[in-house]
Amino acid sequence: MARAVTNRRKLVFTLVAWTLALLIFFPILWTVLTSFKSEADAIASPPKFLFFDWTLENYTTVQERSDYARHFWNSVVISLGSTFLGLLIATPAAWSMAFVPGKRTRDLLMWMLSTKMMPAVGVLVPIYLICRDLGLLDSRTALVVILTLINLPIIVWMLYSYFKEIPGEILEAARMDGASLRSEILYVLAPMAVPGIASTLLLNIILAWNEAFWTLALTAAKAAPLTAFIASYSSPEGLFYAKLSAASTMAIAPILVMGWFSQKQLVRGLTFGAVK
């Protein structure tokens, strides 16, 4: 009896969860569906759900008009580059703040946030001028550096909170056994920090992949990533919704695939310590 109630509850809960997911996912589904329609079907009223002439014509048009592979490669280089550079700078810093906390640690964490208080439009010109003077306009290097700067605060904050969760007694024990600072970090700390670092890595690849303001402002042809690729299909005149949908689908496909494969790691990494 009790079991039947529990089962029914579970069924209702599952249905609610699935409905929620479908509602949230619907706009993406709609975009993907639209990308397979002809332009006439795309603006049909009432809208056509599944019963239309499926066509790949939008994809071939988009592929002919712009070089997807190059944009894709730029996105990969920029998001991976900025994430690794960010981790390289942030990991030691987060280690310091978590394990050798000083009086200023709190102020430091707050001060880092201040870089997230300036509107991007406000510092666009000074940064543009620096890039111009260094000859870095339309280069991936400039974007890697800028995205690193933008995401550095959140990388440090995330790593700091993970490192905080690592029990100090283990490090203490290693010290007692006469481990040097180097082997303490390398053999005791690093293995325990890997899940936290991994989830920070994933999160920041996604953040960098999505960034559109700086990538649009500082790139032209050479270094433009996928966000610029989509923007080039957003002409206000004319109705090119099917093509825009196709371009959008192509731009988000890698993230969809990565999100699917990494959601477990992402959640597990973020919940580092849950296994204890």
Binding site: K10, T31, N210, A251
Partner: peptide
């Protein structure tokens, strides 16, 4: 619950989409 992985992925995806794309999608 059954299918949690799929639901998680579906729910988390909107955030992984560039703002200009989602703005365009919704404008449409």
């Amino acid at each position: 619950f059954p299918g949690r992985g799929l639901v998680r992925a579906a729910v988390l995806v909107p955030w992984a989409i560039p703002t200009i794309v989602s703005a365009k999608m919704w404008a449409w």
